[in-house]
């Protein structure tokens, strides 16, 4: 067992982990942050995406023990300080970008990372960026729309079905 300390959603945390303990497991089982979901075992589905030192990563692909001292943001850290939904979260609700909600935390984290890097992405850029996040419910239509809306672009034309 190794002792690991991190800052998760602005709070200092620490815990004992095995060498094989994944960051996703540490967040879920160790810290009780169950918003990060595990949807596969081959780093394909993206339900477990979190931000580590500002980068979006799949937390099922990182060992907790390797991340001593890291700054981690999970879906639980994405709302505004008053508890209201953050910009990306609000856009997902406004545009019905989620159904069952299981892929949603990873989608939001992935989308937020895209917008941090590319504040006005095109539709094609959004779709390309979200390739590593699988959603089985929405057919991606409203997710792409939500991300474009979160970037401040007019999605009125898309809305006009």
């Amino acid at each position: 067992m190794t002792k690991v300390s991190m800052t998760v959603n602005g709070k200092a945390v620490s815990g004992e982990v095995e060498g094989r303990t994944l960051l996703a497991t540490f967040l879920r089982e160790g810290l009780g942050l169950t918003g990060t979901h595990v949807g596969c075992d081959t780093s394909q589905c993206g339900a477990c995406v979190v931000h580590v030192n500002g980068q979006a990563i799949k937390s099922c692909t990182a060992f907790a023990a390797d991340l001593d001292g890291a700054k981690v943001t999970t879906i639980e850290g994405m709302a505004n300080p008053d508890g209201s939904l953050g910009t990306v979260q609000q856009a997902f609700q406004d545009h019905h970008g989620l159904q069952c909600g299981f892929c949603t935390p990873g989608m939001v984290m992935s989308a937020a990372a895209l917008l941090a890097e590319n504040p006005k992405p095109t539709e094609a850029e959004v779709r390309h960026h979200l390739e590593g996040n699988i959603c089985r419910c929405t057919g991606y239509h409203n997710i792409v729309k939500a991300v474009l809306a979160a970037s401040g672009q007019d999605v009125g034309q898309i809305a006009a079905e």
């Binding site: 169950t34 918003g35 997902f92 989620l98 909600g101």
Partner: peptide
């Protein structure tokens, strides 16, 4: 707008594995 979205968007959903 869906009221259930708030919990799903903030990581507060309660799935069986949780």
């Amino acid at each position: 707008k869906r009221r259930e979205d708030v919990r799903f968007l903030t990581g507060a959903g309660r799935y069986t594995d949780d």
